[in-house]
């Protein structure tokens, strides 16, 4: 990229100052978000906080069950969503005409646009009531899987599209069928996209609150689920409930700690995706 030659004239200087100001402001805003979280929540993050279940409605103890619950939902959603997303991306790129591909992409983008709370409404009725799962972690997993599906599909497709056409032709020239081509060329060469998509999806699912609020989680009194139709408790729900109801000071510090933990979890997934993408993927 070109660096700037300092603009002569008042307009140029004014413009330069204005855009720099927006940049400084944006960065300051976002840095302050992180630093407030660290300042408020950093102190309570001890091993005990992570390893103990919470007691006295969040005022004492730790957030072990909450972390487990968040991870169960996110990882479960990732496991369900991944094969479906992979299948979709492969079917599109290998079996569909270009024209049809763009129609399907529109549908995927539409799904991506659906507000998360609507997945909650939909899932509550379909999984919770019709399938009889009730308010359970399995409902939550299914709902989140739907929600992150577009993220995975788009990321995998991006990687498939970036495979050089020679690789594909080399495979076809050897007389491979399409399933063989998928196994030997497409999946190996788009693997980084699959991992990136999965990590981005996990990041989204980990941070999601609204979709699982009234479908999969409960505030208190559960640890690890023992059957399919039991709810879990998650960091998200913990923060939501405690922030509104906590009067006790130690509960307030626990809620900051939970939020910081949640943010760090999300950052782990998304920075993983970022590293993989900047190393292998589409150059940004």
């Amino acid at each position: 990229m070109m660096t700037s030659v300092r603009g002569r004239g008042l307009v140029g200087r004014f413009w330069f100052l204005l855009t720099m100001l927006t940049t400084v402001l944006s960065v300051m805003l976002l840095v302050s978000v992180v630093s407030v979280m660290v300042a408020k929540g950093g102190a309570v993050l001890t091993w005990e906080f992570f390893s103990q279940p919470s007691r006295s409605f969040g005022a004492e103890g730790g957030i072990r069950s909450q972390i487990m619950g968040t991870l169960i939902l996110a990882v479960g959603a990732g496991l369900i969503s991944l094969p479906i997303a992979l299948g979709t991306a492969l079917y599109q790129s290998e079996y569909l005409s270009l024209r049809f591909q763009s129609v399907v992409m529109r549908l995927i983008y539409a799904l991506n646009g659906v507000p998360t709370i609507l997945f909650g409404l939909f899932g509550y009725l379909v999984f919770g009531l019709y399938f009889g799962l009730g308010i359970s972690w399995l409902s939550g997993v299914l709902i989140l899987a739907m929600m992150i599906l577009p993220t995975l599909v788009v990321s995998i497709r991006e990687a498939i599209e970036s495979i050089p056409v020679q690789y594909r032709e080399a495979g076809l020239a050897l007389g491979m069928t399409i399933p063989q081509l998928i196994r030997t060329v497409i999946i190996p060469y788009s693997f980084h996209g699959i991992v990136t998509g999965l990590l981005l999806g996990l990041a989204r699912a980990t941070g999601e609150t609204a979709a699982i609020l009234f479908t999969a989680t409960t505030f208190f009194g559960v640890d690890l689920p023992k059957s399919f139709n039991e709810p879990v408790t998650t960091l998200q729900t913990h923060i939501l409930v405690l922030s509104q109801e906590a009067v006790h000071l130690s509960a307030t510090s626990a809620v900051w700690g939970s939020a910081l933990t949640l943010m760090v979890l999300v950052f782990c997934f998304s920075s993983g995706a970022l590293v993989i993408r900047s190393r292998f993927g589409v150059k940004v």
């Binding site: 978000v33 992180v34 979280m37 941070g207 809620v255 939020a259 949640l262 999300v266 997934f269």
Partner: peptide
Amino acid sequence: EIMAGVPGIVYGLL
């Protein structure tokens, strides 16, 4: 890119 993933609940709490 990292900050784009900060969960809504964190902003809610803030």
